[in-house]
Design a protein around this nucleic acid. Sequence first.
DNA 1: CCTATATACTGAAACGTTACAGATTGTCAC
DNA 2: GTGACAATCTGTAACGTTTCAGTATATAGG
Lengths: 347, 347
Amino acid sequence: MDRDQTEKDDEGSGRPTLKTLAFMTGLGVTTVSRALKDAPEIGAETRRRVQLVAKQIGYRPNRAGVRLRTGKTNVISLVLNTEREIMSFVSDIIYGVSEVIADTPYHLIVTPYSRSQDPLDPIRYLLETGSADGVIISRTQPNDPRARYMLERGIPFATHGRTDMGLIHPYHDFDNYAFATEAVRHLAGIGRRRLALLAPPVELTYHSHTLNGFTDALSEVGASEIPFNTVSVDHSIDQIRMRTAQLMRRDVRPDGFVSSAAAATLAIVAGIEDAGLKLGRDVDVVSKQSSDLLHLFRRELLVVNENFRLAGAELARSVLGWIGGAAPGSLQSLSMPGEVVAYRRPD
Amino acid sequence: MDRDQTEKDDEGSGRPTLKTLAFMTGLGVTTVSRALKDAPEIGAETRRRVQLVAKQIGYRPNRAGVRLRTGKTNVISLVLNTEREIMSFVSDIIYGVSEVIADTPYHLIVTPYSRSQDPLDPIRYLLETGSADGVIISRTQPNDPRARYMLERGIPFATHGRTDMGLIHPYHDFDNYAFATEAVRHLAGIGRRRLALLAPPVELTYHSHTLNGFTDALSEVGASEIPFNTVSVDHSIDQIRMRTAQLMRRDVRPDGFVSSAAAATLAIVAGIEDAGLKLGRDVDVVSKQSSDLLHLFRRELLVVNENFRLAGAELARSVLGWIGGAAPGSLQSLSMPGEVVAYRRPD
DNA sequence: CCTATATACTGAAACGTTACAGATTGTCAC
DNA sequence: GTGACAATCTGTAACGTTTCAGTATATAGG
C-alpha cells in the first residue's frame, strides 16, 4: 500500500509546523528544517522553494519545540528590584532592551525580587529552571555574588554598572566619576565652596565612583566637603528632605549639592526651602536626571542627563553579543555625561 | 533479560525530570506525573512519597515540555506602547502584576509596540504564535479592536480602562468621572469659576469619562469651561507649556485647571508662570498623580492619587481569574479616587 | 563495470510532559 | 471458585523541533 498522503489531517486547523511545510513541498521534515536555516547540504532551489512557502503561509517555529529540543529559550530576563529601582529606569531600560531585541526572536521577561529576598534568589531560579539565555541585572556591587554566580554557571549576562572583582563580563555604565567631577567643577565655577554629596547607596559600585569623582574634584578646585552621608538616594523622599533641612540649619552648611538622582533632588530642594533658604541664591544643586523634568521643577537647578534607554539598548546588545559568541571583554561600554546644563528659556 | 536499571545514565548531571523521579521512587513516569498534580487515582501514600522526593531534589517541571504537550505557556504578556506610556505607569504596573504572579508558575513578558505600528500587531503576534495564556493591555479605547480581536479568538485578557462596545471582558479602571467631578467641586469650593481641563487623548475611553465628569460638575456648581482641547496629556511637555501660556495671556483665562497626568501638570504650571501668573493666587490646579511628588514641585498644587501598582495587581488577578475559568463579567473593578488633597507640612 | 565520493535528501530518535488505553492487583458478592 | 468492580499503577504516543545515521542518486576515476 502506498504511503498515505494525509498522515493526519495536517493542513487547515492550527498554525503551520514543519510537518505542514514538508507536506506542502513534498519534502521530508528534516529537509525543511535544514532548508530554513540555510544549511549547506540543501540544494539552492529547494532552499528557495521552502523559504518561499514558509513565508507565504507565515510559518513561525514553535518556541516550545525548539526550546525542548535545543534548550535555547530565546528569552532575555531583566532582573529588577521591586522596591528600590528608579521609576524612569524601569520604563526606559525596558524600552531600550525592547528596541534592540525587536527584530530578533527574543522575548523579554521581567524577573522581580523584593526587599526581603536575597538578590541571588531570582538568578538561582533562572539558572535552575533554565528560563533564559541571557540575563540583565542592575544595582551592581563591587563584589557581586550574582555576577560571580552567573560566571561560574556560564550563562551570558550584562550588568548595569561595573563590578570590581577582577572578573571580566559585559557591562554598561554611566561615568559617575566624570559626572561628580563635572558637577563639582561647575559649582566651584559659580563660586560654591562648601559642597555636599547625596550619593548612591554604599553597597553599589557607583557609590565609590561618584564619591571618588566628588572628592578628587574637591581637592582639584580647592573646595571642601560638608558630610552628608546619613542618607543616600535610596532613602525615602521624606528622610532626605528632613536630613537636608537639618543640614541647612547648621552654622556650617553647604552652599552646593551634588545629587545622584532626580527624585532625591526634589527632596533636597524641599529641605533647602524648609530651612528658609533659596535655591540659586544661598545654594546651588547639580543633579542627574533621566527625563527632562527638573528644570520645570526649579529653573535654578543644574542638571546632567543620564540616558537609561540607551543603557537598556546597550545592555541588550551586550547580552546578545555574548550569546552570539563574542568575547565578554569586548562588550563593555561606558557612557560619558554631557555638560552640566542650566535652565534655558524655551523659544 | 531483566529490565536495565539505568536506561540512560539518569541521575547526576542535569536537572531532575519526571524520569529521574520515576527512577528514584521506582514508579512509572505517568504515576509520578499524576501524583504531583494530586490526581485522584493515585494512592495517598504514593502521592506523599513522590511529592516528598520531588521537593527534596528540587524538581521543577520543564516549561518547554509542558508547553509543547499542553499548549499552556504559563506566560502573561503585558503589551505596552513604547512612546506614550506614562513612566510611573510602566514601573508600577509591572510590579503590581509581579506581586500577584509571584507565587504562581506564571512569567511576565513585556511585549512592546511603537508609535508607527498598528496596536493590533503585537496582539496578532501573541495570538498567532500562542506566546501567552493571558494578555494585559492599556490605552483602552471605547471601540477597541484589540479587545474585540481577543474576544473573537477566545484568549483571556484584561484591559486597563474600559471599552464601550457592549462586550463583556475583565478590566480595571480608575474612576476618572469621579476624579473630574471631585476636582471641579474642590476648585469651585475655593472660589474658582472658570475652569480648563487638560484631558486624556480623545481616542482613549477615559477621555470621555473625564470630560463628562468635568462638564457635569461644572453645571452642578455653576462654573464655566474655558476650552483647552488643543492639547492632551499625550502632548509634549513643551507643547502643553506653550499652549497653557497662550491661554493664560488671554483676556478670559481660566482660574482653575484639572489635569489628568502629573507630568502634564508640571508643564501647565510652567506655562502659568511663563504668563507671569502665580499658582494659588491667580489660578489653582488639581492634578492626578501616581507618585507623591507633585507637592514637592509646588506646594500649592492640589492632588488626587491614582495607584498604578494596585491597577497592575488587579489586572493580573483578573487575567488569572479568567484563565482559571471565572466569568469575565465578574472580573471587573473600578478604583475610586481619594479626596483632593492639599499640601500638608511634613512633621 | 565496479568502486569511491560528493550531493541531496530522509526516517528515527530524543528533549519532558500529559492523555489515552490498558494492566495488575485485591475485595467482595454470589 | 468465579465474575464484577474498584483501586492503583503503567506503557505508548504525541506535541514540534533538531540531530544522528543513514539512503539514494549522480559523477568521476580506475
